[in-house]
């Protein structure tokens, strides 16, 4: 085209015209990446420093905060800031939900991959996708109008309870557990199954002795991801759990979690007050836990590679 121009001018980078657009594009996408990093870092820094204020500025004892079971911030004379009931509540409801969702989710995954791989997946897959699509407030609302009265009338207690929270959360994390467990099961090499069947094992023996152990790290990842979601879920739990400040003595007792206390009180405490600051400390615990879940998942996936 422009062959009359000497090669040096055509081919050397000194001719920078073309590089303008190239550079602009590169800067643009790098900027996007930088924004993602800075958002993550600022979330960590802002929530970190805000969460520590109650300990540094307001003199709330960290030990009291995480070990005392007395939460009474509005007591003028001697306010008490023990968040243990909420921390325990969060863990209790998370583990209980995982306990319900794990067998269902993994069972569903095995159904889709081992029992009825042809049509089972066609039915269950869209079911799972639809479950994901239901917003968490809708889960909370149905929990409130169906589950809570049901428990009150047929099981006992007030209805607002750890049990109600557990069931709602279990259904909410079921799609997460099922999806990842299905991926785990279907990525197992075919010869595992064939080898086991060739030795005369039944399907159940193959599943229990060969497939589940082989997929174990991935199945655990599925459960941990589900738990991470359960630990951070706020509104659905808040609507059904009852939100009391005592440690529940059994599963039918009302309870509270970190997220439900934050949800409930953030709006009507004064920004900057001690009580408000302790809510931010609870938020910090949520943040730290979500880092912990990531580390746990990384640990599991590093085990998988071995």
């Amino acid at each position: 085209m422009e062959k009359l121009i000497p090669a040096k001018e055509r081919l050397l980078k000194s001719n920078k015209k073309w590089m303008d657009g190239e550079l602009r594009g590169k800067i643009l996408v790098i900027l996007c990446a930088v924004i993602m990093i800075s958002v993550t870092i600022s979330i960590t820094i802002f929530l970190g420093s805000k969460g520590l204020q109650s300990f540094i500025h307001n003199g709330v004892s960290l030990i009291e905060f995480i070990t005392s079971k007395h939460w009474n911030p509005t007591n003028q004379a001697s306010p008490q800031y023990g968040a243990l009931p909420f921390i325990l509540g969060s863990f209790a409801v998370t583990f209980a939900a995982a306990l319900v969702a794990a067998p269902l989710g993994i069972g569903g995954a095995i159904f889709m991959t081992e029992i009825a791989p042809s049509w089972g997946k066609k039915i269950l897959q869209p079911v799972i996708e639809l479950l994901v699509g239901i917003p968490s407030v809708v889960y909370g609302f149905i929990g409130l109008t169906v589950l809570v009265p049901f428990i009150r009338e047929h099981v006992g207690g007030l209805g607002f309870s750890l049990l109600a929270g557990t069931i709602v959360l279990a259904i909410m994390i079921l799609p997460t557990v099922t999806t990842i467990a299905t991926d785990a099961m279907s990525s197992l090499p075919k010869n595992l199954r064939e080898g086991s069947y060739a030795l005369g094992a039944t399907r159940w023996q193959t599943i229990r002795k060969v497939l589940i152990p082989a997929a174990m790290p991935n199945l655990l990842t599925a459960i941990v991801l589900g738990m991470a979601r359960a630990f951070g879920e706020a509104l659905a739990v808040q609507m059904v759990i009852g939100n009391v400040r005592d440690i529940p003595s059994n599963i039918l007792d009302a309870s509270a979690t970190l997220t439900t206390i934050i949800t409930l009180n953030m709006g009507h405490t004064t920004y900057g007050s001690v009580e408000n600051n302790t809510l931010w400390s609870m938020g910090l615990i949520l943040l730290i836990m979500s880092f912990a879940f990531i580390l746990l998942i990384r640990y599991l996936s590093s085990r998988r590679k071995m």
Partner: peptide
């Protein structure tokens, strides 16, 4: 990290 943050956080 962003993907796993609870929405309340």
């Amino acid at each position: 990290v962003l993907a796993s943050l609870p929405s309340i956080v």
